[in-house]
Amino acid sequence: MSDIGWKTVDWSVAGEGALWLALTLLAYLGARWLQGKAKGNPLANPVLIAAAPLIALLVSTQTSYADYSHGGWVLLWLLGPATVGLAVPLYLNFTEVKSALLPMIVALLVGSVTAVLSAVLIGYALGADVETIRSLAPKSVTTPIAMGIAKEIGGIPALTAAFVIITGGVGAICGSALFNLVGVTDRRARGFAMGVAAHGMGTARAFQVSLQAGTFSGVAMALNGIATALFLPLLWLLFAN
């Protein structure tokens, strides 16, 4: 995360940045409103709905992503402290979480390893560039952690950030249908899988469904961030040598 921050801000364009920041907030509010109108339909994903008009606006005004980032970095930076805030539900729900400790550990290990290996193997099998594969590996982890991991293993952090968002969108949209398909009705399991596979966007979706699913999803997201950050660089070291 060290390459984003106030040091990289060019103050001569801060005004334009503030405008893009305001437009992003506006797009978010509009997306939340639409999400409410859609009555919890998973297709109404706030991130994807908000990003689409912003991209259209950037393209039509021939503004580069770098120029947009003069405002956007503030939100990306806030993701750090917000992610640290996961410690609160983790602490508050410790008793309920502790009662399902074994299923959580197994689901964490299975989900975490599946997320990394499936992405890497599919990318490799279809002939993706090594740098692309390195950037794909931490895609299921929340952005600030995923970008940190990408940097560790020689991927492109900004590219990883983009992959993380698409992963979150896929998870938030497909999750419920897939769980129904394989017959998992336990809300703890559904929430936990959302957090492991689709980080904060999956967690936001899980909270929409139920508090219990959201709690387990938040816990899973935090644990997966920690687990992937620990095992992925080691795994990479192992395979690289």
Binding site: P46, A50, W73, L76, L79, A162, G200, M201, A204
Partner: peptide, 11 residues
């Protein structure tokens, strides 16, 4: 939380 993912989504 979703708000903070939007810039990366635009990215």
């Amino acid at each position: 939380l979703n708000l903070f993912y939007i810039p990366a989504g635009v990215g």
